[in-house]
Amino acid sequence: MPPNRPPATKLAPTQRSAVTNGPLFIDGDGNSPWSRRYKDLCSEHASDLGGADALSQSQLSLIRRAATLSVQLEQMEGRLSEGLDADMDLFGRLAGHLRRILETLGIERKAKNVTPTLQQYRAQRQVGRL
Rank of each mutant, 00 (worst) to 15 (best):
L62G: 11
E108P: 00
T117I: 08
L73E: 05
T104D: 03
G83E: 11
L69I: 07
E82R: 15
N4D: 13
R93V: 08
A52D: 11
P13L: 02
M76F: 00
G96K: 01
Q124I: 08
L55M: 03
S56K: 02
N21K: 08
G128Y: 04
R129F: 09
R64W: 02
L69E: 07
T14L: 06
I63E: 03
R100M: 12
T9I: 13
N4C: 05
S81P: 04
N4A: 09
K110A: 12
L84R: 15
V127R: 15
L94R: 07
Q119I: 09
V19W: 02
T117C: 07
S43L: 10
S56M: 02
K110R: 15
T14H: 06
L94D: 01
P33C: 08
R36C: 06
A67W: 01
N21S: 06
T14W: 00
I107N: 01
N113E: 10
R16D: 02
N113P: 00
T115R: 13
T68L: 13
R122M: 12
P116L: 12
E77C: 08
E82W: 10
Q124A: 15
L55C: 03
P2G: 11
R122G: 03
D89V: 12
G22D: 03
R65W: 10
K39E: 13
Q59C: 04
M76R: 00
E103A: 02
T104F: 01
R99C: 05
D48C: 10
L98I: 03
K112P: 00
